[in-house]
């Protein structure tokens, strides 16, 4: 078995390992195990959702444009604290969600870091179904056999300039 694995290009091995990581990440979100999800982050990690319709969503900084979400680690921590309270009304009762990741492409890797992109379609079910679709950019750092998230940037793909889903209340 390991001989077979060794014959695979390194790129594919990385892809399989990051896919495994991403699926676990998505599963924690769908299960609302938010403390465990947060534990996937590096202590300098960030989580962002870029403005809808902005020209340069992959590179724009939240210090110059009005993001939908622009969390450094501390605010992300507070977001998780908030989302676990019944007083986060929008998610109480909690919505049912399914995060689906596809088209995973490892764009850059070295001994310490992996940068990748994937498409996502995420459904939120609460008094009807809303669907979010777009691209996730992940910056992962290697941590032993596993990874930590240094940055997760969510770029929504939309033809309408407005967020027809109303809010980004759960984690995308």
């Amino acid at each position: 078995m390991s001989a077979v694995v060794q014959e695979l290009p390194r790129r594919l091995i990385t892809r399989l390992t990051v896919e495994d990581f991403l699926y676990r990440e998505a599963a924690l979100l769908d299960a609302w195990k938010l403390d465990e999800w947060l534990a996937l982050f590096d202590l300098e990690g960030s989580y962002e959702v870029t403005p809808v319709g902005i020209k340069d969503p992959e590179t724009v900084s939240r210090a110059v444009a009005y993001f939908l979400v622009g969390d450094d680690y501390e605010r992300l921590q507070q977001r998780i604290v908030r989302l676990q309270k019944p007083s986060a009304h929008v998610e109480w009762p909690r919505s049912e969600t399914r995060h689906c990741y596809t088209n995973v492409i490892v764009e850059d890797e070295n001994d310490t870091d992996v940068r990748l992109r994937c498409n996502f379609i995420t459904r939120r079910m609460k008094r009807g179904v809303t669907e979010y679709c777009g691209t996730n950019l992940f910056h992962l750092v290697r941590a032993g056999d596993d990874f930590k998230i240094k940055a997760k940037r969510v770029i929504l793909a939309q033809d309408v300039p407005y967020l027809h889903q109303g809010t980004v209340s759960m984690i995308l």
């Binding site: 939240r62 110059v64 622009g70 009304h89 929008v90 809010t167 980004v168 209340s169």
Partner: peptide, 20 residues
Amino acid sequence: LEGALSFLGPGGFATPDDVE
């Protein structure tokens, strides 16, 4: 920007509850 996005807007800590 930090102050604005933490409170207001569809991904903020307050607006989603208003929407609800």
